[in-house]
Simulated assay, not measured.
Amino acid sequence: MTRLFDVFEGIRLKGILIILFGTLLFGFGIIHFNLQNGLAHGGFTGITLLFYYLFAIEPSLSNLLLNIPLFIIGYKLLGRVMLIYSIIGTIALSASLRLFELYPVTQLPLQDDMILVSIFAGVFTGAGLGLIFRAGGTTGGADILARLANKYTGMSLGRFMFTFDAFVISVSLIHLNTTMAMYTLVTVFVTSRVIDFIIEGASAAKSTMIISDKTEEISDEVIKRMSRGSTVLTGRGSFTRDNRDIMYCVVNRNELVQLKSIIDEIDPYAFVSINDVKEVSGEGFTFDQSQRHMTPAQ
């Protein structure tokens, strides 16, 4: 019994629920937009759709048959927690596909507007995969192949995924015409952008580098008005050779205007550099408000 608990150590119910919801979104998108309108897809999902178009094999079945041997081959590369989440994701995806195969929510007559089909297919599949990835799982397939390729050939994960998607879509030309293949590329592009937004966008922020003679005053006002901390670094100007304080501060997007207002109010001549931050964690971002204890230094 103790060993059984050890196997599932680190597995969280919240993560499982997110994966299950993600597979429902993904399955809905594949069945109601890709399959109903004759679109292909990248990755192993694209192979399952191709099998359906050519041999009438249900995607829910071919998804399981294709992934089982890959889990056997690549289980050591995933790690225990990710392996369990991925197995859950793969089984749940097949169940979601089967659910929507048997009980379609709606028939959407969108064949005359394939741009709309392509976009919504990408939104649903991207949102589903993004939630699955964010929870620490995968849907198996190309992700495992990418890790194997990275280990034994040194090919990057992103390069392999792009190459594999391009290969699957190219093979899908057996069934698709060129126009449908181009719509499929639109779907794959939207999918990738939505995945990035789900994984990174929710935690996106702005980092600022502020060089000013009044760094301490700016820092105090940022703490007072925004409850945001900062780090003051010491640098030296290459032209003047003077030592200067450099204030580094990370804020949410919606706080950037307030930060710039504070800077302009205290030192309108300050040099300010602003950059995108794809992910941020820690006090003020991933802690609850009640856990924040930012106060000015005494």
Results as ranks from 00 to 15, higher is better:
residue 289 Q to V: 08
residue 265 E to M: 10
residue 177 N to T: 12
residue 294 M to Y: 13
residue 196 D to L: 01
residue 113 D to V: 06
residue 131 L to H: 04
residue 115 I to K: 06
residue 131 L to S: 09
residue 108 L to V: 14
residue 123 V to K: 00
residue 83 L to M: 08
residue 26 F to Y: 07
residue 275 N to A: 11
residue 41 H to P: 06
residue 30 I to Q: 01
residue 206 K to Q: 08
residue 180 M to C: 13
residue 102 L to V: 11
residue 78 L to G: 02
residue 140 G to D: 13
residue 261 S to H: 11
residue 198 I to C: 06
residue 54 L to C: 10
residue 179 T to L: 09
residue 171 V to T: 05
residue 77 L to N: 09
residue 152 Y to T: 15
residue 194 V to W: 00
residue 180 M to I: 14
residue 95 A to S: 14
residue 273 S to L: 07
residue 5 F to N: 15
residue 195 I to V: 14
residue 104 P to M: 11
residue 135 A to E: 04
residue 18 I to M: 02
residue 26 F to K: 05
residue 139 T to L: 09
residue 292 R to N: 15
residue 198 I to Y: 03
residue 201 G to L: 02
residue 15 G to Y: 00
residue 6 D to C: 09
residue 62 S to H: 07
residue 200 E to K: 06
residue 237 G to R: 03
residue 125 T to D: 09
residue 148 L to R: 05
residue 265 E to P: 12
residue 175 H to A: 07
residue 79 G to W: 11
residue 156 S to M: 01
residue 298 Q to D: 15
residue 21 F to H: 09
residue 276 D to P: 02
residue 22 G to F: 01
residue 242 D to R: 06
residue 215 T to N: 07
residue 281 S to I: 13
residue 294 M to F: 14
residue 180 M to A: 14
residue 99 L to M: 10
residue 51 F to C: 14
residue 167 F to G: 10
residue 28 F to E: 12
residue 97 L to I: 14
residue 42 G to T: 09
residue 298 Q to S: 10
residue 240 T to G: 13
residue 166 A to Q: 07
residue 111 Q to A: 13
residue 175 H to W: 12
residue 78 L to F: 04
residue 169 I to P: 00
residue 109 P to M: 10
residue 191 T to M: 11
residue 51 F to K: 05
residue 57 I to L: 07
residue 187 T to M: 13
residue 141 G to P: 09
residue 89 G to M: 05
residue 209 M to Q: 10
residue 101 E to H: 08
residue 4 L to I: 11
residue 222 V to W: 00
residue 110 L to K: 05
residue 226 M to Q: 10
residue 70 L to K: 02
residue 219 S to I: 05
residue 113 D to S: 11
residue 221 E to W: 13
residue 163 T to Y: 06
residue 86 S to G: 08
residue 184 T to C: 12
residue 27 G to V: 13
residue 260 K to T: 02
residue 148 L to P: 05
